[in-house]
């Protein structure tokens, strides 16, 4: 006789293996997966579609589920690759001016001859440093707005690195960039974000 232990968001059988219960998927995981997608892509419609695509794709490969990880972990992994697909498509469709995915109107922060900061782009203190900036909701919201303005490849690399804690190797492979380009992209994205934060905060 089978003794399954059923919890709110997963079911485990007597040998400790996770089971799939597609009839409970929406109830258990739809909001979680939608939130996951929304944090990575700013497009509600597309996120909704991705959640649906994830469930339907998962149904096609229930055979490959071995039960070592939970149902949610397995579904999230499927969704993650769908998000990366969107990243690749967006970056591919973007008319960048170089192989780093730089926007046409990207500001040049450094002097092209001596590589020093241009005077008008000197970093200045934000003025929130002493008052625990991590608790400052408006300051965090400003960063979020700045993130949305990054060119798609930069936003994708930055998201994979910071939201998913992905290693350099995986990001390079998925986004088809070299390790050297990876650092250039991280650098430009950060310089750009920092500047945007300064401009919109001070």
């Amino acid at each position: 006789m089978m003794h399954n232990s059923i919890n709110d968001d997963h079911t485990v059988n007597e040998t400790g293996h996770h089971l799939l219960e597609p009839r409970l998927w929406v109830e258990r995981h739809a909001d979680f997966l939608y939130t996951y997608a929304s944090a990575r892509l700013n497009d509600d419609e597309q996120c909704r579609d991705l959640v649906q695509d994830t469930f339907l794709a998962a149904l096609q490969k229930v055979e490959s589920f071995r039960g070592d990880a939970s149902e949610r972990t397995w579904l999230t992994a499927i969704l993650k690759y769908k998000v990366i697909d969107v990243y690749r498509k967006r970056s591919g469709a973007f008319a960048a001016k170089d192989e780093y995915g730089t926007a046409d109107d990207e500001i040049e922060f450094f002097d092209p001859d001596n590589h020093h900061w241009k005077r008008e782009h000197w970093p200045a203190v934000f003025g929130v440093e002493d008052k625990d900036p991590l608790q400052n909701k408006e300051f965090l919201a400003t960063l979020q707005q700045c993130l949305k303005r990054l060119p798609p490849l930069w936003m994708s690399v930055f998201s994979l690195k910071h939201l998913d804690d992905e290693g350099t190797e995986m990001i390079c492979q998925q986004m088809k960039i070299s390790p050297a380009n990876f650092w250039v992209i991280i650098h430009r994205a950060k310089v750009n974000l920092r500047s945007c934060l300064q401009k919109n905060w001070i």
Partner: peptide, 29 residues
Amino acid sequence: ICRIYEKQSVLINLMMQKLFKEERKEIRL
């Protein structure tokens, strides 16, 4: 100037953590 940059760069990474790992509330369909 680069010393200011370094401090702020570290701060931005911490803010990313905060924004996406702690503060994230579940959005409902």
